[in-house]
Structures are given as structure tokens and as C-alpha cells.
Design a protein around this nucleic acid. Structure first.
Lengths: 152, 152
DNA sequence: TATTTAGTTCTACATTTGCAGAACTAAATG
DNA sequence: CATTTAGTTCTGCAAATGTAGAACTAAATA
């Protein structure tokens, strides 16, 4: 098992993307590896060797990725090793959660607004409008996700 | 100019929220201050004193927040100080950009898919479905943003 | 032109983060 | 029951990050 140059480049590219959405470099690359590799189920040691990373790093990253719900492992009869793979179907949920998390500011904003003096009506009006934007988007997004889930 | 206990709590709360979306603690708190404070335009020194932070920290954070498009400053005739305030109207654009950035993975995914062998048809099918999800969402979101901008 | 003002840049430092390698552990195997 | 296997936990370190304070600068003021 080894990687083509093209695959290595793709892993780095996807790795950087993953870093920017809150993973460590190694986490990002492990996830990328599991998406790019032609072997879709890789063992601890294969991951470690392919990415040339330390044992503890591999262990910790794999555990984090599991906690975050991005990967899982299966086992095979008569084989003690764990075979890790991405939980692709979870991605939609991931995206949904993160979108909604972004719009969660709405609640905080309402709290801020409730505490503002009425001596800055213009500012308050803008904040109110922003709030309406959040509410609107939350509604729209739920609808979109619903629409996707229930498509034929 | 000083803050109520309630305001201080709100600033910390919003501050933590901001930290989690990629700002330093101080950046997050400055932005929070400018949203929570009843005085909507604050000077360098007011910000520094209210948040009890260093001069260089204040300077760097204010510059970063301007680069990120989150704040701006105005000046007053016969007054050399800068008066900083949030660019609230930019928030919608911020949200839009970040949403779209999340879905930008779609392009990367297509590249990955193009490079996968056809020996893993099931996996590839799932990836394809994920891609369709991204495309669908991108379309939906653009529509939603458009709808918001053109509402009466 | 000396001083003050409003802010920037430089230097230093403490904290946090990410990773490696060694030591360890629990289960399976010889 | 000694050894191997498959991983986890511990220890330490190098680099990055976030902040403070001092030194500096450019413009305005006395």
C-alpha cells in the first residue's frame, strides 16, 4: 500500500482545507488520506506509515476524529487490528450543525439587544435587522436541509 | 465611560463566541465591546482602558479587525482621535462568505473524485452523493441570500 | 522648535499547541 | 507463562500564538 504523487498532493490540499475548519494538521491529513486513498479502510499502522507520523500522534488524532464523528472503525474476524474509514454519511449532518452553530449567534444577539439602552435607536435598529437576518436564514436553512433529506 | 456588570458579562460571552470563530481573545472582546457598549463609537484609549489591555495589543487587534472588515473608524473635525465602531452591515456579507467557504469543499471533492480508481464503486457513489449535497446547498443558499437582499 | 498626542513597531516572554518517542498496558498468541 | 501485538498514556520539546511594555514616529500644539 502506497500513494501516488497525485494522491499525496491531494491529501495535502484537503489537509490544509481541514486545518482551516478546526483540525490539527495531522487530523486533517488522516481524514484526507481516508478520502483520497483507494483502500478505503486503513489500519493504525498503515496510516502511521503512509503519513510518516508518530505513534502517539496517530493514536490521539484517530481518537479525536472519532469523537468528532468524522471517522469510525470496523474489525475483521480473526484480526485484532482496527480498520478506520470516514463516516461520509455524517458529513451532511456536520455541515448542518456547523451552519446552525454559526447562526446561533442570533440568540446571543437577542440577549445583547435586550440589554441595550434606547439612547442609540439607529444602532439598535441595525442590530434588530441583523437579528431578523439570522432568523430568516435559520428558517431557510432548515427548509433546505429538510428538502434535501426528503428528496425522492 | 464605564461598563455595567451585565455588560461585562455579555462582552465575555460574546468574546468567547468570537474566539471560537477565529479571533484572538482580545479581538473578540473588542468587537463585543463595540456591540454591547451604549457608546457606539469608542477611541483607542477608551477601548484600551475599558478592556484593561496593553497598547500594542489594542493597536494590533484594531488593525486586524479592520483588515477583516469587522470594524471601521470615523474622525471628528478638530479631533485627532479615531472613533471605532462595528460595521454591522458587513455581517450579512461575512456570514454569506463563511457559508459559501464551507461549501467550497465541493470543488475539492470533485477533484478527489476525478482521481479515484473505479475499484471502489460504493465509496465513490457516496462521495458523488455528498457532492450533489454540496451543489444543492450552494444553490439553495444563494437563493436564500438573494431572497433576503431583495425582500421588500 | 520643544512638547504633547495618538498611535505603531520592536523586544521579550509566558502560554498553548502539535508532535515524537519511550514507557506502559491489556489482550491474544506461542 | 513468556512473548507478541495493537494500541494508549506519559514526558518532553520545538514552534506558534497572544500579550505587555518600552522605544519609537509623525503630526499637531504650545
Amino acid at each position: 500500500m502506497n500513494l501516488t504523487e497525485k494522491q499525496k498532493v491531494l491529501i495535502e490540499k484537503l489537509g490544509v482545507f481541514n486545518e482551516r475548519s478546526g483540525m490539527t494538521p495531522v487530523e486533517g491529513r488522516i481524514l484526507a488520506l481516508l478520502i483520497v486513498s483507494d483502500v478505503v479502510e486503513l489500519t493504525f499502522d498503515e496510516i502511521k506509515e503512509l503519513l510518516e507520523i508518530g505513534k502517539s500522534t496517530t493514536s490521539n488524532a484517530l481518537n479525536m476524529l472519532q469523537i468528532k464523528g468524522r471517522i469510525e472503525y470496523i474489525t475483521k474476524l480473526g484480526d485484532r487490528k482496527r480498520y478506520f474509514r470516514v463516516k461520509i454519511l455524517n458529513w451532511e449532518k456536520q455541515i448542518e450543525q456547523r451552519m446552525m452553530a454559526m447562526l446561533a449567534m442570533s440568540d446571543l444577539m437577542k440577549e445583547v439587544l435586550a440589554n441595550r439602552s434606547d439612547k442609540t435607536p439607529e444602532f439598535n435598529k441595525e442590530l434588530t435587522k441583523l437579528n431578523q437576518f439570522f432568523d430568516f436564514m435559520r428558517e431557510e436553512f432548515s427548509e433546505s436541509f429538510f428538502k434535501w433529506k426528503n428528496r425522492k
